[in-house]
């Protein structure tokens, strides 16, 4: 109760609220449980929300792979979050391999993770950059060609390079 009161006081006092990344635990395409909490503190994490039927999402994924390869030794991890419904899940892993993706791909079959990050009005492609401390440092909605440079800048800044 004391903690809750403290929270309310902070809110009413108007202290700035940078967003803490909602934690999730989802199954990857290989059947392993992936917890975001396992990454927090050790890595800068990029979440890439996508779906096999979303062309802009597919277009940006090879770039995310390049980003991952370039900065993984500096502490970057990329998690691709597939918003495919169960009817399409069998094609998710094949599509990721086709695009040459080697970073982790998890399945968000009931869109719970997407809702947690976007609230009521959800849209993809959607990219989230999470700092070492678990706070969201940048988000990119409805990615367009040319945005890849801004994503890289955000990642570099989050990595402290």
């Amino acid at each position: 109760m004391r903690k809750l009161s403290a929270l309310l006081l902070v809110l009413l006092a108007g202290v700035a609220v940078a967003a803490q990344a909602p934690l999730f635990q989802l199954e990857d395409v290989n059947g392993n449980n992936v917890k975001l909490s396992d990454y927090i503190g050790d890595y800068v994490v990029v979440l890439d929300f996508w779906a096999t039927s979303c062309s802009p999402c597919l277009a940006v994924m090879p770039h995310m792979q390049e980003l991952y390869e370039e900065y993984k030794d500096d502490g970057l991890r990329v998690i691709g979050i597939s918003e495919d419904l169960p009817r399409n899940v069998s094609s998710v892993k094949a599509k990721a391999r086709e695009l040459g993706v080697t970073y982790t791909i998890v399945l968000d079959q009931n869109a719970a993770a997407l809702q947690a990050y976007q609230g009521g009005d959800a849209g993809i492609p959607f990219i989230v950059v999470i700092g070492y401390d678990g706070q969201i440092t940048d988000t990119f909605r409805r990615i367009q060609p040319g945005d890849e440079d801004k994503i890289e800048e955000a990642v570099v800044e989050a990595l402290g390079l």
Partner: peptide, 15 residues
């Protein structure tokens, strides 16, 4: 979601 949604699939798909 249970499995591939054969018996149960509760989801929000605004997209």
């Amino acid at each position: 979601t249970f499995g591939r949604g054969l018996t149960l699939h509760l989801y929000d798909d605004p997209i």
